[in-house]
């Protein structure tokens, strides 16, 4: 059951990652691409947290948790910068 949970969520994570990655390559709209990258990142985080999970009784492996926390902050930073660039680009279009 532990393995199943790990497996299940891990596979979902991988699926989300693949989905996000391919639609990031496929879509042309900038905002959508940013969304897709975030979904892909979330998929990876899910994979890591699933790997860390060791059942309802045992404490999970804290290392991936720390990695994901770092990852979330990094992903936010990148998204914020990307969105600011998009915004600026629109402003130059308007001007």
């Amino acid at each position: 059951m532990i393995l199943d949970t790990q497996l299940l969520y891990g596979l979902v994570g991988i699926f989300l990652f693949s989905l996000g990655l391919s639609s990031a390559f496929a879509s042309s709209a900038l905002l959508r691409r940013i969304l897709a990258i975030n979904v892909a990142g979330a998929g990876l985080f899910l994979l890591l947290i699933a790997v860390a999970y060791r059942g309802p009784e045992i404490n999970p492996d804290p290392l991936p948790h720390a990695l994901v926390l770092t990852g979330i902050v990094v992903a936010f930073s990148a998204t914020a910068l990307a969105l600011a660039l998009v915004k600026r680009l629109r402003e130059t279009d308007d001007d």
Binding site: L30, G41, L47, L85
Partner: peptide, 19 residues
Amino acid sequence: LRYLLLGLLGSLAFLAGVA
């Protein structure tokens, strides 16, 4: 922007491998 987004995709692929 293109540089940033592609770089992000690259880093994500890298991170997937690390995971």
